[in-house]
């Protein structure tokens, strides 16, 4: 007996799992840089975060007698992203709490993969940031290839310095150090170079389109640039702002999350510009030096609304 089924009788090779695998490949340069710069501590945070995310997803599904979906690798991606958003000195138990918030509260409680409104890794990060502000803003100075760099001196991040830069003062960190990641900060956000390598892979594999990263960074840069022109203050240094903090990581890996970003190109652009403007507002007018996480989470909440009003042009309906 031969099979009958509806067409099409062929499918692409791409699955949710291969997509997540590509995202993990894209995150590899950032992971490697964090290991080289922050040593064994970074490895501990990374391992803890990934293991707890996978465990929480598995355990949650088991308790509620749902299908085990850990093989789609999305929990691994969340784990890596959460770790890269934490300082290398993060205590293990705090990382576990972050993973719990990300997977159980932000993802599984909303119905699992594809149903969450907010980016799970960012929910985890922001929860930790509000709950443990001291640990979340303790940065160690990176030391290349010094794996047991455990008692390095605490360093202020470039964004913190920028925020409080007075007239006539200048940022002492060079653009090159900002670009390669020879600065203090969260594990995965410091090296712009590593993140751009990841972006290249995501674009090459057609996992994401260029719209969100470009419009996010672009709208942010325009806002900063206008401020710089109007005030002339060094704290609005556009390039330094672009290369510092979680902006690159956010624009490339967090704002482009499928589930929590809009569907159409038009929607993606609105979403990305919203992220860019909000990041600017928080960095310049807010009390925190960094605003990427909050900006993306706020825009996540607008995604259903954006999707409701941004439709594709339908063939044959007459372009206006």
């Amino acid at each position: 007996m031969y099979k009958i089924s509806t067409s099409p009788h062929m499918n692409s090779q791409q699955t949710t799992q291969t997509i997540m695998r590509d995202v993990i490949v894209a995150l590899t340069p950032a992971m490697l840089v964090s290991l080289f710069m922050f040593g064994i501590q970074a490895l501990i945070v990374l391992a803890t975060s990934v293991a707890s995310c996978v465990f929480f997803e598995y355990f949650f599904a088991r308790r509620l007698k749902l299908k085990n979906t850990t093989s789609d690798l999305s929990a691994v991606v969340t784990g890596v992203l959460l770790a890269l958003n934490l300082p290398a000195t993060m205590p293990i138990w705090m990382t576990v709490i972050g993973a719990f918030m990300a997977i159980v509260v932000a993802k599984m409680a909303f119905g699992g993969i594809g149903k969450n409104i907010f980016n799970p890794a960012l929910v985890g990060r922001v929860f930790l940031f509000i709950s443990f502000p001291v640990q979340m803003t303790t940065w160690i100075t990176p030391r290349f290839m010094d794996f047991f760099n455990i008692d390095a001196t605490t360093a202020a991040t470039p964004l913190n310095i920028l925020k409080h830069l007075g007239a006539g003062e200048q940022l002492t960190t060079g653009y090159w150090d900002l670009f390669i990641g020879n600065i203090g900060g969260s594990m995965g956000e410091t090296s712009v170079l590593a993140i751009l390598l990841g972006l290249f892979w995501l674009l090459k594999q057609k996992i994401i389109t260029w719209h969100i990263p470009v419009f996010y960074l672009g709208s942010f840069a325009v806002c900063m640039f206008l401020s710089e022109i109007v005030t002339g203050a060094p704290r609005f240094d556009v390039l330094a702002h672009l290369l510092s903090g979680g902006l690159m990581l956010g624009a490339v890996f967090m704002a482009t999350d499928y589930t929590t970003s809009p569907m159409t190109k038009k929607g993606k652009i609105i979403f990305a510009v919203g992220c860019g403007v909000l990041t600017y507002i928080i960095r310049v007018f807010g009390s925190y030096p960094e605003g990427v996480s909050f900006a993306i989470l706020i825009m996540n909440a607008f995604v259903p609304l954006i999707d409701k009003y941004c439709h594709q042009y339908v063939y044959g309906t007459g372009r206006k």
Partner: peptide
């Protein structure tokens, strides 16, 4: 004529809202 190994429909999983169907549709549907 498709071989026995390729005749089955693949197993489905949850929609991840990737939007690939939206980009693919030649009529601009969602």
């Amino acid at each position: 004529v498709l071989s026995a190994e390729t005749a089955d429909k693949p197993e489905t999983s949850a929609c991840i809202r990737c939007g690939k169907c939206v980009d693919a549709c030649p009529m601009g549907l969602m």
